[in-house]
Simulated assay, not measured.
Amino acid sequence: MKYRELYKMELSGAYLFYGSEKLLIDNAVEYISKKYIPKGMETFNLAFFEGKALTEEKLIAFCETLPIMSDKRVIFVKDVTAFSENVTKDFGSFLDKIGDFCILVFLDSENSLNKTKSFYKYFSKRKRNVEFGKLDSREVLRFVEGYIVRKGYTITKTDLSYLVSKSSYNSKNIEMTLYDLKNELDKMLSLSVGEVVNKALIDESLTENTDSNIFNFLNALTNKDTEGALKEYRNLHLLNEPVQKILFMFIRQVRILISYIELKGSMYKDVEIMNEIGIKQYEYGKIAKVAHNFKVDFLYDFYKRLLIVDESLKTSSVMEDVLLETLIVEFTKK
């Protein structure tokens, strides 16, 4: 089921929300909460549970409790992956019998649930698996225009298209979410001196699309091109790309390499690996060509180092450039 269908129907029973766009999931959670729970009755009829701390018995008991001064009781279960690992075979039978007064939503905001297992298949078979995936070109135009208008600004269709093209949202090489795009829009609007978003404001905020620079940086890393990787890192730095974001892309690339090598070694098919990692054909092809450059033990050790560095950048004033350049050199050593 596409997420937009939720806004056109009356809900009851159990659903699974999953996908890469956490902003869309969060919007749907807010919409359902406000639509079905009267103001002031949230304490009695609205509940959020953490999946790793929730037992099947507790959830069943809560779902069977009638709402108070409301037609519905709404329950959200976060971190569904952790919860799904401990459910019994009879849990599906319970879900089939949930009363119409109850809306139970499992949230896979990290998009980590194994879609080959029975928990996901239960929802898929009943068409109650709701995907919140990346927006297509027309949808992202509507999203950006709507956001700008709600903030009290105007923009022409021409400048709207230009703005979206200057962002990295539609990039094949950059994992940019709507939350990232929203942050870029907020930064741009904060620079406005009027109520119109025009090309000059867009250029002032988004000085250059960093798509090609990020791609070139990651490509140089995985090809063990030390000089090229350092050059592209410095280009990104000149474009004021945050070190934290560059490091995030570095960490993601190493994680994907590890997953590819492990799954390929376990005889997974290409399409199964893409689905498991969550990448498209274009990026998969790039990873497949360079994976032979690395041993999995090295990648695991380096991944741990990157996570430590990531934490240190958040908590201390270390010399970011020196640290990142040192990691780049070590990763690309032949």
Rank of each mutant, 00 (worst) to 15 (best):
S137N: 05
T332D: 08
E56A: 08
E276P: 00
K231Y: 12
K72Q: 05
M176W: 01
M69E: 00
V29G: 02
S93Y: 01
I155Y: 11
G19E: 12
I32D: 05
D100V: 14
V290R: 07
V87K: 05
G133C: 02
N219C: 09
L66R: 13
V74I: 12
G40T: 03
D225P: 05
L66E: 10
N45R: 11
K8Q: 15
L141R: 12
S317P: 02
E195F: 04
D310W: 00
T43F: 13
E56F: 08
Y15E: 06
K172E: 14
L66P: 02
V197R: 01
I68K: 01
V29I: 14
L239Q: 13
A28E: 08
F94N: 05
G146A: 03
P38Q: 04
L313P: 02
V243E: 12
E139C: 03
D100S: 15
V77F: 08
D96R: 02
Y233V: 10
T210R: 11
L23S: 14
E320N: 15
M176L: 09
L24R: 13
H237A: 02
L257P: 15
K199G: 03
E110K: 09
E272C: 14
N27T: 07
Y303D: 13
D225F: 09
L16D: 05
Y3V: 06
E195I: 03
N86W: 00
Y282W: 14
I277K: 06
L54P: 07
R126Y: 10
Y282Q: 12
E85H: 00
D159E: 15
A291N: 15
V193M: 04
M1W: 09
V164H: 03
L201K: 08
V74W: 08
G13P: 10
Q244I: 10
L185M: 12
D310F: 00
I60P: 00
N240Q: 04
M69D: 01
I258D: 05
F49G: 07
I279P: 10
L191A: 07
T177R: 01
E175S: 07
D225C: 05
L104W: 06
F298G: 07
V140A: 01
T177K: 02
N27M: 10
N129H: 02
R138P: 00
L306V: 14
F17P: 07
K231T: 12
L230M: 11
S165Y: 06
L307N: 09
K157W: 12
G285I: 11
E21W: 06
A291K: 11
V149C: 01
L135N: 07
F76E: 09
I60W: 01
D100N: 15
N129T: 00
S192D: 03
I328D: 05
